[in-house]
Design a protein around this nucleic acid. Sequence first.
DNA 1: CAATTTAGTTGACTCAGTCAATCAATTGGA
DNA 2: TCCAATTGATTGACTGAGTCAACTAAATTG
Lengths: 305, 305
Amino acid sequence: MSDSALIDAARDFNRFYTNFLGVLNKAYLDTPFTLTDARVLFEVGSQERLSAVALVRDLHLDAAYLSRILKRFKAEGLLETTPDPDDRRSQLISVTDRGREQFQELVRRSNAQIAGRFDKLAAGEPQSIVGAMKTIRSLLDPDATLPPLVIRPHRTGDMGWIVESQAKFYSEEYGWDMRFEGLVAEVAGRFLSTFDPAMEYAWIAERGGINIGSVLITNGGDGIAKLRLLYIDKSARGLGLGKTLVDECIRFARAKGYRQISLWTNDILSAARNIYLKAGFQLVSEEKHRMFGPELNGQTWILDL
Amino acid sequence: MSDSALIDAARDFNRFYTNFLGVLNKAYLDTPFTLTDARVLFEVGSQERLSAVALVRDLHLDAAYLSRILKRFKAEGLLETTPDPDDRRSQLISVTDRGREQFQELVRRSNAQIAGRFDKLAAGEPQSIVGAMKTIRSLLDPDATLPPLVIRPHRTGDMGWIVESQAKFYSEEYGWDMRFEGLVAEVAGRFLSTFDPAMEYAWIAERGGINIGSVLITNGGDGIAKLRLLYIDKSARGLGLGKTLVDECIRFARAKGYRQISLWTNDILSAARNIYLKAGFQLVSEEKHRMFGPELNGQTWILDL
DNA sequence: CAATTTAGTTGACTCAGTCAATCAATTGGA
DNA sequence: TCCAATTGATTGACTGAGTCAACTAAATTG
């Protein structure tokens, strides 16, 4: 795609999104607030203590205009200002309890608007949209901070996500065929069907509501814990997430009294192999196979606990 | 993956993009046009001949306001209007040569703004942004013509999608627990692992690259085809897609020489039951079970071919 | 410590956008 | 077929969101 085609597409999107936001912002029409009022309240409500200059900068408002808005909000008891102890020209703005209520009302309305849009979409589409929004934001807004990475137990739909994302990744990257997806689905399915909360666990890493990593411990019998389906999404590589997940597995296996962790992998997956090596796993056997199409070196690794 | 996390993220993006567009739209500040003027000129310039109502609708403008803008543009010789021959109340608006020049000047300024942004980015990043914009647009823009519905054989990742979407749907709608997801994953996994292209098939319905429905035929032995994992996404209900997929199954089973199709379902899934009934399936057995948490009536249906 | 910059306020203004009333053409029933 | 309701477009009358310039007060610079 040529540069000018990209620019045209972006301009077109902006035109579209200007309209779209125009519609969404009608949500504020039957509140006592104008769009600018709402934006100010949003900003103050979200950030708690900030100065007027910061607002002028962030929202690109006229200082005189903002001054009047703040004055009105103060008169209505929505905001209060305290002089900045470090710079007595400046004042720090924060919401009062009443202001917080109004802010939350705005959030509710705004959320309802968005939820209304999302309701009309197919399953997974909101995720696609939000994912795309995050892409745009992270590239256009250098200050954007990533939402925190959370590691949590599995819940409904996670195993499906594991099957889909692993299948797609290994297919694209290494040309593995659908038998691999079949294996993953069977492993994931058996895990859920025979799940023993006392001895088994699944860790899902997510960021901002989007899954980015996984690992399972299943009970292999004879005091052996099996580590399975370790996977880190492209977007989260290089953060040490793989190590974190494997460490969680080891801690869990120790706590549950397993005497050994075993896992099966393939030698071309070097990032994973490094994690296992560093965690103290030892390679115990290796065999060539063609389970997924291309010839691979399957490896079994073991860690004595 | 929670809904509210997605909505929060979307709201946050909208807040960000409102500011962003606010900055971009400053591009028009040193032209004789207001933002609304520019939007009108853009729309007319891009679409060539359109009616005032269409503009009011698309740009969500007040009709009175638009009327004045058009009047001014006509007076300045930027636009001309001709009465719509089909409806003499209505008039078709088009740009004059001078109008086109002005329009192109706006495009130039807008492009320059965007190019300025893109210049600061790394190689490939503009592509990512534009790709993400297209994702958002295609999903949010109701006027964007729906891409055609395609029914195709399964490919990598589809089974994972089936697991995730079915698990989420039946969990939300009927409170089924994760054992259901386990069952689906096992069925899907076994299908892939033991896939026999001669006698088995999976149909995936997709629209614009997004999966919206599925059904499988697996070989149950003894001349019995098993119909499994029929699922239609929320967004595609009521289009007769379920019937289409089941019809495909029947045609396939006949062609492959099966003598019977059997399927297992639960009585609360009335939409599916209607499809089976109309296709000629007969209920042959029924038993209460609690395989997925709540008490359900499992049903076996059979169609003789 | 004078000159300059920065944070915030106030007065004065204007024009972008809204609302209600009206006209003219079209559509939809009884 | 004709009357009532609807739809497209325009105009008059208005308002309040947002702008610009001038000013005060505190902080920074050199």
